[in-house]
């Protein structure tokens, strides 16, 4: 397994992601810096969460125009797997790798809490093929701009093509605000057309140890990596 974590000024979940990947694969992933123009052939690149470039202009906008993005685009055109978490998801959208937009949370609050995700009836994707439609994963979110929006045609396309990976789901009767940001169709994560790029707001790397309150993130990352390695 050749994995790398792409790091930008202001990334702050890179170390947690490195710990998670090391725990699963037994070796530290490569660290890619935003200015890197050369990268070896890799199986998986992860763009971690954080506040790249201080969220200036728009979340992810400046990172999405960094030199490393060309490498990342080459990586996916070779069929490599790519995971963007939180700010990483925002960067993938700003880089036009995934469609739609992530805007300010509906209630204007930074939301940091556990969410319940329902795995959707998705197209063939290494990130999801070990799970069944309707499986639940408890993974925390922490973001201010995670409200996914898209026009009606795009939403229809994403639904019909099985490109919605996860939806926020109500997990108990008392939990009425299960969608933490107001995203359309309760979308928490979407896939590229070929299923090999996943952008998600929740942080799997923050749920890899029982001391975190759960290990569903570890389960998700482990299964994904098993499928990517094949």
């Amino acid at each position: 397994m050749r994995a790398a974590v792409a790091i930008f000024p202001g990334s702050n979940c890179d170390r947690d992601m490195i710990v998670a990947l090391k725990k699963i694969t037994g070796k530290s992933p490569l660290k890619l810096w935003h200015k890197d123009t050369e990268a070896p052939n890799l199986d998986l690149i992860v763009i971690p969460g954080g506040f790249s470039f201080g969220d200036y202009l728009r979340c992810g906008a400046l990172a999405a125009r960094s030199p490393i993005i060309k490498n990342i685009k080459n990586h996916i055109s070779r069929g490599g797997a790519l995971l963007g978490v939180c700010n990483g998801f925002q960067i993938l959208i700003e880089a036009n790798i995934l469609p739609g937009s992530l805007v300010r949370n509906k209630k204007l609050l930074f939301t940091c809490r556990e969410t319940t995700l329902e795995v959707q009836n998705s197209l063939q994707s290494p990130f999801l093929s070990s799970f069944n439609t309707g499986d639940y994963l408890n993974i925390p979110v922490a973001h201010n701009e995670g409200n996914y929006i898209a026009n009606t045609e795009l939403l229809k396309e994403l639904e019909n093509d099985g490109r919605i990976a996860f939806k926020y789901k109500q997990n108990s009767e008392i939990e009425t605000d299960y969608n933490p940001n107001g995203s359309l169709h309760d979308i928490a994560g979407i896939l590229s057309k070929n299923g090999r790029v996943l952008g998600m707001m929740p942080h799997p790397e923050r749920s890899i140890n029982s001391l975190h309150g759960g290990t569903d993130g570890l389960k998700f990352l482990t299964k994904s990596i098993e499928e990517i390695v094949g």
Partner: peptide, 10 residues
Amino acid sequence: GVLDPEGQAI
């Protein structure tokens, strides 16, 4: 048509 929560708060 794009939600402007900051505008709503103002």
